[in-house]
Design a protein around this nucleic acid. Structure first.
Lengths: 119, 119
DNA sequence: GACATTACTTACATTTTTTATAGTACCATA
DNA sequence: TATGGTACTATAAAAAATGTAAGTAATGTC
């Protein structure tokens, strides 16, 4: 992934789990505080960096960059840079990224349902 | 959740996200390194602490306890203690926990598919 | 020449999660 | 009296994730 230490037990555990459990593998990829929500917004269509930032009011630019980079590295979002000034960069889901749609919807519905039960 | 600092920005962000995004809310609940895999095993039926430990070879007892406690607090697993010596404790999914099944399956399928693409 | 805009980057601090290691209570059996 | 099994708990440390604050490049407009 990004700066994770390849000598740590944690790294070894993640690898082992991901190897034998595709759902753990998937969770590693779309895990992280903002990844799912970013994908959720991108399901509606392309968005620029600044637009995403507005949609996720409390995210810092650093976190947004990190998450987008991670999603890009996982082939879930595609990044397009336009050679303009000021710069314009657009993010959109790839095909495999778009296939997260039913999962995100599922989580959404499950979450709504769970909220009712939990309180 | 567990030991998270209610004065931190991170806490505030998580709350805010969970409030407006049910999928982020859900992700908070089933997030964590082992939670999904534990649920995945429990989809097959009740399991004892020691059995889960064997199924997740590298997990420490502490992590297993923490994750189970978190899942219990979220009403996703039910814990039953039998007054025996040596002790016997069984874990099983609740109704709402069981409803994670299609999501877990979805993640599993998506993960398999993603593995093919990513390499 | 100063300023605004956009999408970042960098260095550093803090918080959260995960791992490591050792111990506990209970009682039955040897 | 010692040992073993089960499901934990306590404490510390390491690692990972997230947040804070400042700075950068390019160029068009004032």
């Amino acid at each position: 992934m990004s700066g994770i230490k390849e000598t740590s037990t944690n790294y070894a555990n993640k690898q082992a789990l991901a190897d034998e459990c595709a759902e753990a593998y998937a969770a590693n990829i779309i895990g992280g505080q903002w990844a799912l929500v970013i994908c959720s917004w991108l399901l509606h269509g392309k968005l620029r960096f600044g637009e995403l930032k507005k949609l996720l009011p409390n995210i810092t630019e650093r976190m947004l960059t990190l998450q987008l980079r991670k999603l890009e590295a996982s082939h879930i979002v595609k990044r397009t840079v336009y050679a303009e000034v000021p710069p314009r960069v657009e993010y959109e889901l790839t095909a495999i990224g778009y296939e997260l749609k039913p999962i995100i919807k599922g989580l959404e519905e499950w979450g709504e349902k769970h909220k009712l039960i939990a309180f």
